[in-house]
Nucleic acid binder design. Structure first.
Lengths: 238, 238
DNA sequence: ATGTAATGTAACAATTTAGTAACAATTTAG
DNA sequence: CTAAATTGTTACTAAATTGTTACATTACAT
């Protein structure tokens, strides 16, 4: 019934030897792999492919893996990341995990171990994806059915436009996480936000009219002044 | 509508408070519910009733939910299971899925969310059963017989072209699931849809003329504006 | 309190999307 | 091979959504 999605992995390392050897090994083991030699290349790869996982070397010129990782996470990218750290570098490991990496592997590593960790994470990911198909997000007396792309108030369906749905979905999947207008733009349309672009604000206004009892005192989508907005499914407390 | 088989759900939890409150909620919402306080009680319930779904708490004395789940699956029981796990317990969740649970819900949970997940699973279940057994889909006063490739209104056969039938079949097999034009094209002809291709729209128009009382106000095949179309066998509610 | 920058939003403009008639092309049945 | 039926294409209209702008309002720093 469900078709399996091809899993695509990117390996980011400035050392061409590692890219070739490890890339080949992973491919040989049946894992589609792309390589990139820098953060810049990675950005291009991410823009043009549906990537399932990133393997990221920490030590790279220009931009370190830690930097890249942090930058991606700040921009709301949730693709799992495995960090390659210098041997026994506890500090890097900890920092890496704090930056939002999902796992780490000390260099030099055994390709088989890398593969094992990759598949472990992908399997976990696949499980949660299957489940998120079932997902409904409930806030107050509203229910957002993501699979059906529909919104209900109690038992009545409320008509919601594509843009409103996409925006609400972004929030609903990230409860209690403040999102900047930039992040929202990235997540909804993969673009940068121009400096004087107010379109996100207007969309928020429209969304609030849909789901807030009193749009002047929003409880679900609140303003983080000077930063952006945050979705609180329990409604504002204070 | 169609005569529906009574769906019976068991809620297994050692906490009597949860059993009572949640059981009452589910019953009030029209879902026949039995409760059990342990794996042993569950076995008795399963022996004496035709159960459609099991809601299973993970943390229980004597035998944990994970254990029960595994035991049932090993014994060939395929009834869908929803696990209630401790909040944010990733490990339980993953193990639960590997044991063969169909979904999970972290505790404490919102009863409405539990209900939503139960009905989602039951609907899917019912759907695959109908399709594998009868190959007949009923909506309003229409009957689509998939094996015969024929469509009836009440007892009168309505002539339907190959293309219309194929399209209707795609929808009929996926009730309440929004389909993009791209998906429809993939499903019907295995091709990508060109950007300015409007043929799906035209087919929809023609299909609506066939099965909608008032094709200007379609109730079975509705437009998901900006996305695609959705088939609602119960007819539009609002 | 006051000035400044950020946010809210009404009103309008621009754009995107959907419905479908009319015709052309293609397929099917005889 | 021909006629009929079906399906795809195009063009146009209407509808719905989304973006832009301008001004009002609000929150913050001083």
């Amino acid at each position: 019934m469900t078709e399996k999605k091809e899993q695509l992995v990117v390996l980011v390392d400035d050392d061409s030897k590692i890219r070739e050897l490890t890339g080949k090994y992973l491919s040989d083991q049946g894992l589609s792999t792309i390589t990139a030699d820098s953060g810049k290349s990675l950005d291009i790869v991410l823009k043009n492919n549906d990537i399932s996982l990133i393997v990221l070397d920490v030590m790279m010129p220009d931009e370190t893996g830690l930097n890249i990782c942090q930058r991606l996470r700040v921009n709301g990218v949730t693709i799992p990341i495995i960090m390659l750290t210098a041997k026994g570098d506890e500090v890097d490991r900890i920092v890496g995990l704090e930056m939002g990496a999902d796992d780490y592997l000390p260099k030099p590593f055994n390709p088989r171990e890398l593969l094992a960790r990759i598949t472990a994470i992908l399997r976990r990911q696949a499980n949660t994806e299957v489940l998120s198909k079932n997902k409904v997000v409930i806030f107050g007396e509203y229910t957002l059915n993501i699979e059906q792309r529909s919104l209900y108030k109690k038992d009545d369906e409320i008509s919601i436009t594509t843009g409103e749905f996409d925006l609400l979905k972004i929030f609903a999947e990230r409860p209690m996480q403040p999102l900047s207008r930039d992040q929202i733009m990235q997540l909804s349309r993969g673009k940068e936000l121009d400096v004087f672009d107010r379109s996100i604000d207007v969309k928020i206004t429209r969304l609030r009219r849909l789901i807030e009892e009193d749009p002047n005192k929003p409880v679900f989508i609140q303003t983080k002044w000077g930063f952006g907005y945050i979705f609180n499914p329990d409604g504002a407390t204070k």
